[in-house]
Computed example of a mutant assay.
Amino acid sequence: MIRDARPEDAEAITEIYNDAVRNTTAIWNEIEVDAENRRAWIAERQGAGYPLLVWEEDGRAVGYASFGPFRPHDGYHLSVEHSVYVHRDHRSGGKGAKMMEALIERAKEGGFHVMVGAIDAANSGSIRLHERLGFAHVGLMPQVGKKFGRWLDLALLTLLLDDRERP
């Protein structure tokens, strides 16, 4: 079941986030967080009017997805950047795709024009998922990040959410 996150999801979200920090290049950060940090993040994200969704199984969040500002300047206010993370033991069965679809709907309902995915270029599974959902490759930024002692390339993909000609 996909639903809006609640403060009590902070512990599960923390576990998912920290696992990604420790073991993946999905998050280009090496600093783990605690549940209080994630509770504050949930409140901040939702307080700003952005969705934070969780996939719930057996009463526990096993995945989460959100979007927020692409960049902080006014000219970008119709563009959002998203993220989706699923617990390592629950990554099969299409949960990421279903949460992405729900995020896309929320972005359309919110009147946004473009959704941006910024993905480790080596993450072929995530890139394929985005392609299946209609995202287009718009750029590659070589060696703009680092983690685990190596340079990381950033793939940029976008999805046009509507067909309006003018903002």
Rank of each mutant, 00 (worst) to 15 (best):
P51S: 14
A26E: 12
E36M: 10
W55N: 00
A26M: 15
E30L: 05
F67E: 02
E36C: 08
Y50D: 07
A65K: 04
I27E: 02
W55D: 00
P51H: 11
A65V: 00
A43I: 06
A40Y: 09
P69T: 10
G63I: 02
V62H: 04
N37M: 14
G59H: 06
T25D: 00
V33C: 05
E32D: 10
G49C: 10
P51M: 08
F67C: 00
A48C: 13
Q46N: 13
A35K: 03
I31Q: 09
I31A: 10
Y64M: 05
G68H: 04
W55Q: 09
P51F: 10
E44T: 09
V62N: 02
R39M: 04
A48M: 12
A65N: 03
W55P: 07
G47S: 08
E30C: 07
G59I: 02
P69E: 04
R38S: 03
Y64V: 01
N37Y: 14
R38L: 15
A61E: 02
N37A: 15
I27R: 06
S66P: 00
E44L: 15
L53N: 00
V62C: 00
A26D: 08
L52I: 12
E44N: 14
A61M: 01
V33Q: 02
N29K: 11
T24R: 06
A61W: 01
A48Q: 11
G47V: 07
A35C: 07
Q46E: 14
E57K: 07
A65L: 06
E32N: 06
N37V: 13
G68V: 05
P51I: 11
E32G: 00
R38C: 01
D34L: 12
W28M: 09
E30K: 04
R39Y: 05
L53I: 13
A65W: 02
L53G: 01
S66E: 02
D34T: 13
I31V: 13
A40C: 13
E56N: 05
W55G: 01
G49H: 09
D58H: 09
G49A: 10
E36T: 08
I42Y: 00
E36V: 09
T25V: 04
R60P: 04
G63Q: 03
D58Q: 12
V54N: 03
A65S: 01
W55K: 05
F70V: 01
I27G: 10
V62M: 10
A35S: 13
W28H: 11
L53C: 08
L53F: 04
R38G: 00
G49I: 12
D58V: 08
A43K: 11
N29W: 07
A65F: 03
F67V: 00
A40R: 13
G68N: 05
I31D: 13
E32L: 15
R38A: 05
R22I: 07
W41F: 15
T24V: 08
L53E: 03
N29Q: 15
